[in-house]
Each structure stands twice: as structure tokens, then as C-alpha cells.
Design a binder for these strands. Sequence first.
DNA 1: GAGCTATACTTGATTACGCAAGCAACTATA
DNA 2: TATAGTTGCTTGCGTAATCAAGTATAGCTC
Lengths: 152, 152
Amino acid sequence: MPAHGVTETAWLRFLRAHAAITRELSSRLEALHELTLSDFDVLVQLYYAEGRRMRRIDIARSVLLTASGITRLLDGLESCGLVAKERCEGDARVTYAVLTEAGVKKIEEARESHNADIEELFGSRFSLEEREQLTELLGRLPLAHTAEACSA
Amino acid sequence: MPAHGVTETAWLRFLRAHAAITRELSSRLEALHELTLSDFDVLVQLYYAEGRRMRRIDIARSVLLTASGITRLLDGLESCGLVAKERCEGDARVTYAVLTEAGVKKIEEARESHNADIEELFGSRFSLEEREQLTELLGRLPLAHTAEACSA
DNA sequence: GAGCTATACTTGATTACGCAAGCAACTATA
DNA sequence: TATAGTTGCTTGCGTAATCAAGTATAGCTC
């Protein structure tokens, strides 16, 4: 398609690549572990959180879903026994989501194949230097590091 | 969040940036022009197609939606009068989607603000050289250029 | 031709979200 | 201590997308 500026082309590639890669990642994750990409995402956040638990609102912010999205997503993970609720003393409004033993196991299993998939579909396209470059460039985009550096 | 390799970090930034940017773009596009990001995407494809018309299946492939997704998306655009159906002589299975006059006008209007938004949220983060670099890097990802080079 | 497979498209059911509204609990101000 | 505002969470409803299944046409092979 002609008549596009550099920015438009870059953006279109970004869009298409996202669609293609997430489709493929989702379907593999679904097939192997019965998890959504978002499920996985949330589990990983919890996995790295202090005490393996987080306030629901903080999960929402770090994975960029709305509060209601998180409520329903956690409903699912809770009924699978991967995550449990926990009251917060000191503030009765908040309920924590805690990773259960099963949840820890699940995420450790799933991570392996999923990381391999990410490597295959995404990382392997670049040299180490290019990966760093890309990371830096992507890091300038809005909200690109919401999930990083939650803890230290 | 520690304990991530370069690839994982890059991927997460990619994911988050996509979520953040598309959310913002969508809501602006919706507010100003009553169009979905996908609607816009399809209209642009048609705009640049020969005769401003395409087979539905080709639209699907270039914007990375399924055939059924396209059927329903076009239902919407047709009932707004932005797109019309056209039979294909020579193959009765296919129906073309053609951009109407109103559709052309719509896309020309919408493009202006939308491109400005893309520039603001995406392009402006990078120098010209970096944009080219990024374009090249993104181009290596799966299906990143489905929408390009349909025609010429 | 008669049948087979492949292709283009549509339709029904389901799903994963978002938004708006509501409730309950915390905080600040008077 | 009342009152107002904010925050965390859930629920109802709408919507954009998917998959699976169905229909109709094309084209190939015998």
C-alpha cells in the first residue's frame, strides 16, 4: 500500500504483528494450559509480587485491564483454584488476590512453553543488540512499563 | 519486575503499549467519527484498493480478522452507507465491498485526526531515523505487512 | 456429465472485554 | 460527629470478536 508515511507504516506493522502474535500465543496457551493470555499475564504479576499477592486494583493497573475485567478474570482463576481471595485488615474495601500452591505450579509450568513461544514468534527475529534497541524504543511508548518495577 | 530476560521485557512493553495506545486511539476515533479502530482500518484498505473495492475475504486477510468478523463489520458500515455490496460476475461466490462517496468522504475526514493521534501517541516518540529502524524491526514479525503492497 | 474438494460467505452461540451504575468502606472537612 | 468526596470492588448490559456449522458456487478428476 503506497501513500503512507513512515509513521503510518510502522504503526500498521505494530498493529498487525500484535494481532498475529497474540492470536498464535493465545491459541497455544489455551491448548496446552487452558489459560488466556490475560490469565497468564495476571498470574505472572502475582508470581513476582511480594507475598505473591496483590490488590485487585493494582493488578488491573499493571496489566491494563479495567477493574471489572479483573473481577471477572479472577472469578475464573479462583474457581480453578489457582488464586484465592484474602481480606485486608486495615482496609475492608480491598481484597487481595493470592496465588495458591496450584497457581504457583501452574505458572511455573506454563511459563516454560510460553516463553519459548514468545522467543519463537517474537524474540528470535532479533539479535541481542536489536532486542535491547527494540526494548528501549518500545519503552518510550505510553504505559509501556506498567508491569515492570512494581516491586524494586 | 526482575527476573525477566530481554525478550520478555520487550514483549511485555509491546503488549502494554499496544493496549494503551489502541485504547486511546479507539476512544478518540469513536468520539470524533463514530468509528471503531477496525472500521477505520477496513475503510483505509478499501480507500487504497483498486476501484476502491475488495473481496471480503481479502479484506479479512489484510486486516487480520476472520471472515465472519468482516461480515458483521461490513454490515455496520453498509447500514451507515459508507460501503456497498457489489456482485462479482464470473464468480458468484464473492461479493465485493465498495467504498461509497460517503465512505470516501468519511475516511478522508477521519484520517486527518487519526493520523495526528497516531503521531502523538506513537510516532512522535521517535526521530525519523528511529522510525525507520523501528519499521524495519517490526517488519520482521509474523504477518506484519499483510496490509502493505496489496496493490503496487 | 457425477461426484469431491475447496472456496466465499453467512449465521448462531459463546466469550472477553469495556462502560456505567451501584454499594460499601475509608478519608477529609466542616 | 455529620457530610461530602474518593476509592475498591461488583453487577448489568452492550459489543466486537471468535469458532463451528451451514449454504452456495467453482473447479477438478474420473
